[in-house]
């Protein structure tokens, strides 16, 4: 199997004029959010496992620590990352299926509008714990 480096691929995309604009930024943010969420996943598994490793009190003391407004805010940002990653992922799958390629910018903004709408519902609940 041939291995193509990211640099070669970017060069190839510059050649076709695709490595630019919304598509480029969406791809970069998709990767960044994916890596952040992957790192968080393992922290999350560790935190929840403290309910068994250290017992109920040790998990509850972690939850108390997470009640800090700034950490609730960070948690809310994770929800934002999940929604961005999920809705951009929907766009990627649509592109793979050949749906909306000609209108990919419109598809991107529709997906982002859906993400923002759902995020607003979570914000509505989280804001009292942040402010």
């Amino acid at each position: 199997m041939r291995v193509v480096s990211a640099k070669d691929r970017e060069t190839a995309n510059i050649g076709t004029g695709l490595w630019k604009g919304i598509g480029m930024w969406a791809w970069m943010l998709f990767r960044l959010s994916g890596l952040i969420l992957a790192a968080y996943l393992f922290v999350h598994i560790w935190v929840i496992s403290q309910g068994r490793v250290g017992g109920p009190d040790s998990l509850d003391s972690l939850f108390e620590f997470f009640d800090h407004p700034f950490l609730v805010f960070l948690d809310f940002m994770l929800v934002a990352a999940v929604l961005f990653h999920a809705l951009n992922g929907v766009r990627v799958i649509l592109m793979d299926l050949g749906v909306g390629i000609r209108r990919h910018k419109a598809v991107f903004w529709i997906c982002m509008a859906v993400a923002a709408g759902v995020l607003w519902l979570f914000a509505y609940k989280a804001i009292p714990f942040i402010l």
């Binding site: 041939r2 193509v4 598509g23 480029m24 791809w27």
Partner: peptide, 13 residues
């Protein structure tokens, strides 16, 4: 997005 569809040829189907 050519970027994403090209992934097919690298990581395996």
């Amino acid at each position: 997005m050519r970027t994403e569809t090209l992934d097919r040829s690298r990581g395996g189907m």
